[in-house]
Amino acid sequence: MKLKDRSYLVTGASRGIGRGCAIELAREGANVAINFRSHPEEAEEVADLVRKAGGKALLVQGDVSDQKAVEEMVAKTAAEFGKIDGLVSNAAFSDRQNIVEADMDGFRRTIDVSMWGAFYALRATAQQLIKQGTPGSIVTVSSPHAVLAIPTSCAYNMSKAAIDHMSRTAACEFAKHGIRVNIIHPGWTDTPGERKFFSEEQLDEGAKKLPLGRLGTTEELGKMITYLISDDASYMTGGTLTMDGGVGLPWWSNRAEGEP
């Protein structure tokens, strides 16, 4: 119970990595504010699982691309639980098209959610922690897209590269307040969001080609994020942990002779 009596906001927590993170935080004793924009039934299910794991749950609906909404959800978290101890900035959106063919509404939506949403959440959480006069821990869920120029993902690549630098800058500025900021790069993970781009057959076949031969799980990512946000990582700030199943390795060079 390394997070007993601590309270965290997790953005985008109704599904995928955010869901796995909320549940793992609760298993370590934390109270969790579960942010969601849509999927209210799934958010309620996450809240039930948080309570069953021993934590208190708070549902906070809101679009992270709305600065005022984010500031209100941080304030509500602190009011409900008596304080806030940190943030998992996880909410993201991605439309994928070639640059010259990109629908600009989807392009801007990707940046508004994945970059500005992360900034609003980090800024509001830090302001609340400083107001409280308490230390805290923030984890930014980024991506290998921050360093890999993956085609058709320009807006998402831009957003993730930006929030990596944002997080390192924040780590510099917030250290004097006892606020740690770290980054995680999840690889290809088995989440509902992947079904937007790939069929089940494509996911199965693609996973087999990865160095570890499978997709990551939200539970695995939740455990890594819980480590980063806890005192187990108390001497780590401005760092990046990668849990990607080896996708960043030159796995394509390990094919058998004669394979394409």
Rank of each mutant, 00 (worst) to 15 (best):
F81S: 02
G82T: 11
G82N: 11
G82F: 12
K83P: 05
K83D: 13
I84R: 06
D85S: 09
D85N: 12
G86F: 01
G86W: 02
L87K: 01
V88T: 06
S89T: 02
S89V: 01
A91E: 02
A91F: 10
A92M: 11
F93D: 09
F93W: 12
S94N: 03
D95I: 00
D95K: 01
R96I: 03
N98M: 12
I99D: 08
I99Y: 09
V100N: 07
E101V: 02
E101M: 05
A102N: 08
A102I: 08
D103V: 04
D103P: 05
M104F: 15
D105L: 00
D105I: 02
G106Y: 08
G106D: 10
G106I: 11
R108Y: 11
R108F: 04
R109N: 10
T110F: 03
T110L: 06
I111G: 05
I111H: 08
V113F: 08
S114V: 03
M115D: 06
M115A: 11
W116V: 00
W116K: 03
G117H: 04
G117E: 13
G117T: 05
A118G: 12
F119H: 02
F119Y: 11
Y120H: 13
A121H: 04
R123Y: 13
R123M: 14
T125A: 15
T125P: 07
A126G: 10
A126R: 02
Q127T: 11
Q127D: 13
L129Y: 00
L129M: 00
I130E: 14
I130S: 07
K131D: 15
K131A: 15
K131I: 09
Q132M: 11
Q132T: 01
G133I: 05
G133P: 12
G133W: 10
T134H: 08
P135V: 06
P135I: 07
S137T: 08
S137F: 12
I138D: 00
V141R: 05
V141C: 10
S143Q: 06
S143E: 10
S143R: 02
H145P: 08
A146G: 14
V147H: 00
V147W: 01
A149W: 07
I150C: 02
I150P: 01
I150K: 08
P151K: 14
C154R: 00
A155W: 06
A155D: 13
M158V: 14
K160C: 06
K160L: 11
K160T: 09
A161T: 07
A161W: 09
I163T: 14
I163P: 06
H165S: 05
M166F: 14
S167R: 05
S167T: 13
R168E: 15
T169L: 11
A171W: 04
C172G: 01
C172P: 01
E173N: 09
F174G: 00
K176I: 02
K176E: 15
H177K: 08
G178Q: 01
G178I: 06
I179D: 09
I179Q: 10
R180D: 11
R180E: 12
R180T: 06
V181D: 04
V181N: 00
V181K: 10
N182G: 08
N182F: 11
N182Q: 13
I183A: 03
H185C: 03
P186E: 07
W188V: 06
T189N: 03
T191E: 08
G193A: 07
R195P: 07
F197N: 09
F198K: 07
E201Q: 12
Q202G: 15
Q202E: 15
L203W: 09
D204N: 12
D204E: 14
E205K: 13
A207L: 03
A207D: 00
